[in-house]
């Protein structure tokens, strides 16, 4: 997957889990927690999806504040290395 495809996959996941997200949202920099497009109860499920897409586990004990604040932040944390 290219970086753009990974971002689109994350966007599609957010939309699939939140039918109320307006068309065209979320953009790469949309504050998805602030807008309630991603809730704390959905994070474990999202992490499993991220692990499957990148085919590598995530150590949730090492996550820092802010890693889920936007598509950009998620991508930079889990896919950009």
């Amino acid at each position: 997957m290219t970086g753009a495809e990974e971002r689109d996959a994350l966007r599609a996941w957010i939309r699939a889990h939140n039918p109320d997200v307006p068309p065209g949202e979320p953009a790469d920099d949309t504050p998805i927690i602030e807008r309630r497009y991603l809730t704390s109860l959905q994070v474990a499920d999202l992490l499993l999806y991220i692990e499957e897409v990148r085919q590598a586990p995530v150590d949730p004990r090492r996550l820092k504040a802010g890693v889920f604040k936007s598509i950009d932040a998620i991508h930079a944390t889990f896919f950009a290395s």
Binding site: S40, L48, D59, P60, F68
Partner: peptide, 10 residues
């Protein structure tokens, strides 16, 4: 096994 749940303040 580690915990995957994360809490956001609200």
């Amino acid at each position: 096994y580690p915990d995957r749940q994360v809490d956001f303040p609200r």
